[in-house]
Design a protein around this nucleic acid. Sequence first.
DNA 1: CCAGGGTGAGACATTGATGTATCAAATGCG
DNA 2: CGCATTTGATACATCAATGTCTCACCCTGG
Lengths: 183, 183
Amino acid sequence: MAVDRDHVLRSAAALLARKSTATMDEVAKAAGISRATLHRQFSGRDALVRALESLCIAECEAALDAARLEEGSVQGALRRIVVEIEPVAGLLAFLYTESQLFEGEGQNEGWTKVDARIAALFRRGQENGELRIDLTPAWLTEALYGLVASAAWAVQEGRVAAREFPYMIVELLLGGALRREES
Amino acid sequence: MAVDRDHVLRSAAALLARKSTATMDEVAKAAGISRATLHRQFSGRDALVRALESLCIAECEAALDAARLEEGSVQGALRRIVVEIEPVAGLLAFLYTESQLFEGEGQNEGWTKVDARIAALFRRGQENGELRIDLTPAWLTEALYGLVASAAWAVQEGRVAAREFPYMIVELLLGGALRREES
DNA sequence: CCAGGGTGAGACATTGATGTATCAAATGCG
DNA sequence: CGCATTTGATACATCAATGTCTCACCCTGG
């Protein structure tokens, strides 16, 4: 029977989210298969990471779809994004740092599309007056990734409560830390 | 003549900020010394990273001192922190991810002190009414690190302008992305 | 000038992860 | 049941980074 490729990917994602330097051997064990079989599915660590990247991109796209970016306020859409993306936050954080070391290589095509969709949302917010215009969509996008990764790690190490995950990110990203009088 | 240890550390910091997987050989070359001499100064990569960590902690402490955290508004202090910390942002980002893979080990003592000072600043802001109280100081601290690291990478890859570095971080962290009527 | 410590260059062994190959056992299918 | 494919276990080769050592060289201080 063909090995459950999807199950292997998800096990690997879960493991690498916790321990980004895990060995192929550990990845195999985590998936409950032998290293040989793992290697038959993914010829090398690079292939595995690329597959994880594709998976993550697909899930992000799905999350963006589910968040219905064009619908309603940008604020609401952003809240939905973060909620939808929470399950892949760990994997996202792993890939976020992993991609730091692909120097010249140029990142996976798929990300540019995800980035573009998120940036477009921020741009829409700026155009309809919901968002301030002095922070560029590119930076807001980057900041969103950064906050998601930070939150994932902070939760992992117990520095913040897991249940607060979406709230913390969205509230900070949208509202900032300053106290406001009711607007 | 004894090798300039500080120069070696700073070269290494600059290199590793760009390429976190750089070899000891590359680090040595970057500092203009041989691998043998590098190894005489720092017996192994671990020792080098630990030394960089100490350096970074010291610089962060110095930045916090220079930012005069107790003086004036929390908002102002935070702006000063980010400005002061910008020169070490790259190194900070490197260590931030590097520390993700020290699983059990427990992080360097020094960080807890830096964390505590920053968290205390946020707490002061909550107590004097400047900051909202529904985002914990721990999360705000974490978010600050995350945003600094994100900004450092984004600048490095040219996705955002370097001159905007402090502005982007502080404005987002304090004010959030939402547009406001004058407060 | 000369002695000595530090340095650079290179050789060498080690280590850990990885890629590769083989073979017996298990599993599923006709 | 018997065959074919897949898997697990294992052994082996490779490879890169590292730790270690040696030795000639240079520079400086005495």
